[in-house]
Each structure stands twice: as C-alpha cells, then as structure tokens.
C-alpha cells in the first residue's frame, strides 16, 4: 500500500510529478494560484480578443470554425456556443477512435441536426488504432510532463484528433479551430491563440514518432504534412471558448439536453463519449499511482468550479470492472 495523501485544498495527490506541500498540507500549485477575480478579468479580456478577430477573419467561402467534436458534454456545449452565441458556420469533425459509445454517436447525430451543423466523421480502420492502443497499454510512449495530464492511450488519441482537425482546417481554409477543453484542461491564457506552425511542427513530431514506429505510414493521414507546415498564412487560430465563459457542469448538461443530448450510460464518470477511457485510466493509475484526470479536476476544485468532495468522487473510486474488461477483450490484452 502506498502512503499517498491529497492536497488539503485541491486534491492533487502526493504521487503527482513534481509536487511539494507546505506545513498545512497545501500543494505548490495551490500556493501559486492567484484567485478567482484574476480569472474573471482575464476571461473577459480573451472573449473580447476573440470577438475582435471574428470581425476581421470571418469568411464567406468556407466554414468559420471547425470544432473537434467528440460527442461528449463539453464539445457539444462548444458547438452550441459557436452557433448560438457567436452566430458562426460550424463544421463538426468527429474522430471515431472505434470506442465511441453507441449512445454518443446518437448524440452526435441529434445535436448536429438540431443545431444545423455539418458533421464529418472520420473512422480509421480499427486495425491501426488498436495496434496503437494495445502498445500504449503496455508501454510508455511519451514524456513525464504529458502524463501529468492524460493517460498514454488518451494522449495518442488526442494527438491524432488535433492533427486531423488542423489538417482539415488547412485543407478547407477555415480560420478558426474550436476545442471544448474545460477550464481545468486548458488555462484561459491559451483560449485564443494563433497556431504557430513551427511550434506545432515540433509538438507533432513528439507525438508522431512513437505512432509511426507502432503503425507505420498508416497514421500519416491524421497529421499535418511537411508541405502544409510551409503554408504559414493559412494557419488558424485555436479557440477554447469554455475557458473564457462561465462553466457549470449542471447548467451545461441542462442546456444541451435541449438539442437532444443525453448522458451515455456506458462510459465512465470522466468521459461522456468513450468506452475505452476506463481501461486507459486503470492502466495509468496502476502505472503511476495517480488518476490521469486529477490535474484537470484539481484545477476545477482550486478555481471553485467543483467542490473538493465532487472532485474526490471523480477520481478516487476504482474504474468500472465491466468497462475495463470490455476494452481488454476488444484489444486482446490483460
């Protein structure tokens, strides 16, 4: 048994990389936190920045924004925000990792229909993805820092999502890329940001290298090409509206139910679209002795979006055995 303990304020555990505590049991991240007022002022500043960009960059000949649409709660709300709050023409791109819950697929259809949004679903051949997930389940592929924020399986999947969304934006000349990152997943400072081609190229290499070793050239269609990296003027702005808008889980769930969205009953408490997530979490928890969602949930506890008890409820219970077993069987691993 480990003698793991949690920060008295935000729930980050003593097993978290690089963590330290003061004599009151409060972690270094909480000690650095500047308070809610600072956050609200910044949120307003970033929404204004986005509105100003919209005036300059709205196009006639293509979509205004392409959204990485998983069918989960947060990205559904993100679609709603772009359509109804900002009146934009949206393309919803769904990367079906072959583990999307059947109920989430129903949600995707209903929500896009109800919001009047074009939907593009890319579902890679299962063989390729499963080879990647199987390898990620048995060995580490990424740096220590990456693992603070997500499991190895999740990081592989999200790397492909980011790649294919950016690639599609470049191909279709779409000026904005939208993500439904919750305020815990991405800081408000990153909520309105021009994609820097050179930075992106470096980041892509780090994700792509292990995937190429596992699956070969089959993964290349999900990433930006060398030639595209030279088309600097086409690079879109990344927008994460949930980081600069008020975020309340219950309000969001109520709001999106108007568009036909229903919470799937076949996913774990931290995902509202993916049936692989419970297994990915379990592998990570066993490997590192902390929950891969604890970083984002601790951020939400620290900033008052969730209570400490709600946070603990999301990360402490063991993963659902049945869901873990389902993924293990599908992937053919123990």
């Amino acid at each position: 048994m480990s003698d793991r303990f949690l920060c008295q304020q935000c729930i980050l555990p003593s097993t978290f990389p690089g963590i330290s505590f003061n004599e009151k049991g409060v972690c270094n991240h909480c000690q650095r936190y500047k308070g809610e007022d600072a956050t609200v002022a910044l949120q307003e500043k970033y929404e204004q920045k986005f509105l100003k960009l919209l005036e300059e960059r709205k196009t006639k000949s293509s979509y205004d924004v392409i959204v990485a649409y998983s069918g989960g709660k947060d990205s559904t709300y993100t679609l709603d925000v772009f359509v109804n709050r900002y009146q934009l023409r949206v393309l919803a791109l769904t990367f079906d990792n072959t583990f999307i819950s059947p109920k989430a697929l129903v949600n995707i259809g209903k929500v896009c229909g109800s919001l009047g949004v074009d939907s593009l679903i890319i579902k890679p051949a299962p063989q390729v993805l499963r080879k990647i997930f199987r390898t990620a389940a048995t060995q580490e592929l990424y740096s220590a820092k990456t693992l603070e924020r997500a499991s190895t399986i999740c990081t592989s999947c999200i790397g492909m999502v980011k790649g294919i969304v950016l690639r599609t934006a470049l191909e279709k000349h779409i000026p904005f890329v939208g993500f439904g990152w919750s305020p815990g997943q991405a800081p408000v400072q990153s909520s309105v940001m021009r994609t820097n081609p050179a930075l992106m190229q470096g980041t892509q290499k780090a994700i792509l290298k292990p995937l190429l070793e596992i699956a070969g050239d089959a993964v290349l269609p999900y990433f930006v090409t060398e030639e595209q990296f030279t088309q600097k003027e086409l690079f879109p702005w990344n927008i994460h509206p949930l980081a600069f808008l008020h975020y309340d889980e219950q309000d969001i769930t109520e709001r999106i139910s108007q568009f036909g969205w229903e919470r799937p009953n076949d996913t774990d408490p931290n995902s509202s679209n993916c049936t692989l997530n419970a297994f990915a979490n379990q592998v990570h928890r066993k490997r590192y002795d902390f929950h891969p969602y604890v970083w984002e949930i601790a951020n939400m506890v620290r900033t008052g979006v969730l209570s400490r008890e709600e946070g603990i409820e999301k990360i402490e219970p063991p993963e659902d055995i049945k869901m873990v077993a389902y993924s293990q069987k599908e992937l053919g691993v123990d």
């Binding site: 740096s143 990456t146 991405a186 400072q189 990153s190 930075l199 470096g202 290499k205 780090a206």
Partner: peptide
Amino acid sequence: TSFLEQGIIDSTGVLELVD
C-alpha cells in the same frame, strides 16, 4: 536539446514557461 521535439514541452507547456 529541442524541448518540443523531445516532447518535454508542448503547446500548453509553452504558456507555463512564458508565465
């Protein structure tokens, strides 16, 4: 050593660095 290519820092990490 390149921070980006080695995956030491990603796009969110860049913001931490800037802070």
